[in-house]
């Protein structure tokens, strides 16, 4: 993956690539709606099974260089940059219970600091008839 600057992007607004993409809930769906149809389940009271070795990089170097691409390459809306009310800064939130075990993050993160490990047994999608 190359940096935002190499593509001449200003910031990480995806309209720069996906102008006109909309989710009409008939033909096209956002990730959260789609993931609902993967019947994913994880016990929420367990440690996240996506180990991010250094989350400081997220709000600083990664935001600047790549615009936090985990929010895009993950097909299940697991990674989300949010404003932290306590610190007033941006931070990475990991919605691990959405994870469909595709392993994209383990492959794609540009700093190679995401490590996918199996969650508690039985957690994950239910791909009936898929």
């Amino acid at each position: 993956m190359k940096k935002l600057s190499e593509y001449g992007y200003r910031g990480s607004n995806i309209n720069q690539r996906y102008d006109g993409l909309r989710f009409d809930n008939k033909t096209t769906f956002n990730k959260v709606t789609d993931v609902f149809h993967a019947s994913v389940g994880h016990d929420e009271d367990q440690p996240a099974h996506l180990h991010v070795l250094d989350t400081n990089i997220c709000a600083t170097r990664c935001a600047e260089e790549y615009g936090n691409p985990c929010q895009r390459f993950c097909p299940a809306a697991v990674y989300e940059m949010v404003d932290d009310a306590a610190t007033g800064k941006r931070r990475l939130q990991i919605n691990f219970s959405n994870c469909v075990h595709c392993k994209t993050c383990d492959i794609m993160d540009p700093y190679q600091i995401i490590n996918w490990v199996p969650p508690e047994g039985g957690g994950g999608p239910d791909y009936k008839n898929m």
């Binding site: 940096k3 593509y7 992007y9 990480s12 995806i14 690539r17 996906y18 790549y66 390459f73 097909p75």
Partner: peptide, 14 residues
């Protein structure tokens, strides 16, 4: 792929 704004789920929607 090279484009950091690429989103495989969005490619499918398109």
């Amino acid at each position: 792929y090279g484009d950091p704004l690429l989103d495989p789920h969005a490619e499918f929607q398109r």
